[in-house]
């Protein structure tokens, strides 16, 4: 922890400038917190690439432009490819001291944008890919994605007598990315903003591909109160349903290892998308969590 704490940023050291301002996202949107903080750390000389997702839908509304840095919209599956292209183009122009960042949602990362991301990591391009994970395709009206957790009610995984909503657990996106032998990868949560700032600061200094996966709540899709957005993202980590970890030099490292998990029921009950869950469904979630943590604690500490 001492080695890595060098990258800590205090909130008062952040720039006063706002690079993501006046967007039309829903009140209490978690993803906008992730984008806003990321741009504050990365700075003005940043090229942002956004595929089709909420963040591009709420900011590029002609003649309004909420990004105060360079930003462009990529085709849905092309975030990784476009990032590589922007980095190569900037290099060809002889630009120095710039950042290239992509903000893709969970569907745009784990499903649709996956091959371009994999290719960009494989090429070893100097890019930063941020996946903001709100656990479904929220922009198009809450459809199930590869990162939707078990028991989630979405429009394409309805809950009823026979099904508890989504019947698959979240894809292990972080480990899949790490398996490429990426320069640096980390998970984060908007409930732990200081941890996210540190990882961004570290990502800024790493040469080569970097992947950050941040859990960002969505009041509209999660059926939660707007003021609970940050609390829910924190609860997810405290209850063990999400984890804060890093991957570097072929090694995983777990950043937070709770002695005792907070209540899973408490986390689930604050969200409309889990309201239908029966006790046996919650037990499936807890069982899956325990299995995952047993493995992480064995090899990631």
């Amino acid at each position: 922890m001492t080695r890595m704490s060098n990258y800590n940023i205090r909130p008062k050291d952040l720039t006063d400038q706002e690079f993501f301002y006046g967007h039309k996202a829903c009140a209490g949107c978690g993803a906008t917190i992730a984008v806003r903080l990321a741009l504050k750390v990365l700075g003005e000389r940043t090229f942002s690439v956004l595929p089709a997702n909420c963040m591009s839908a709420v900011s590029f509304i002609y003649p309004q432009m909420a990004f105060a840095t360079n930003a462009m919209i990529a085709p849905f599956p092309a975030t990784g490819a476009m990032l590589s292209g922007v980095a190569a183009g900037a290099k060809a122009l002889g630009l120095k001291d710039f950042q290239t960042v992509g903000f893709a949602g969970d569907g745009g990362t784990a499903d649709i944008g996956f091959q371009a991301l994999s290719g960009a990591i494989d090429r070893g391009d100097d890019i930063l890919y941020i996946c903001y994970d709100n656990e479904a395709y929220m922009n198009t009206g809450i459809q199930k994605s590869g990162l939707t957790p078990y028991g989630t009610k979405t429009t394409t995984s309805p809950a009823g007598e026979n099904l508890p909503g989504s019947v698959k657990h979240k894809k292990n996106m972080f480990e899949i990315v790490a398996a490429h032998g990426i320069a640096y990868a980390a998970t984060a949560s908007i409930g732990y903003p200081n941890d996210f700032l540190r990882k961004l600061n570290k990502a800024k200094s790493v040469r080569g591909p970097v992947y950050l996966h941040i859990l960002a709540s969505c009041p509209t899709g999660w059926g939660s109160k707007t003021e609970l957005s940050v609390e829910l993202a924190k609860d997810a980590v405290d209850s063990g349903l999400w984890y804060l970890a890093e991957y570097e030099n072929d090694e995983f490292k777990l950043n937070v290892n709770p002695k005792e998990f907070a209540s899973v029921e408490n986390y689930l009950s604050k969200q409309g998308r889990f309201k239908h869950l029966k006790e046996e469904d919650i037990n499936v979630i807890i069982e899956h969590r325990d299995k995952k943590w047993e493995k992480m604690r064995k090899t990631w500490l």
């Binding site: 301002y21 006046g22 309004q64 432009m65 930003a71």
Partner: peptide, 11 residues
Amino acid sequence: AFESGHLVSKN
């Protein structure tokens, strides 16, 4: 393409 940080309406 359009100018960045261009706001025309409030929230």
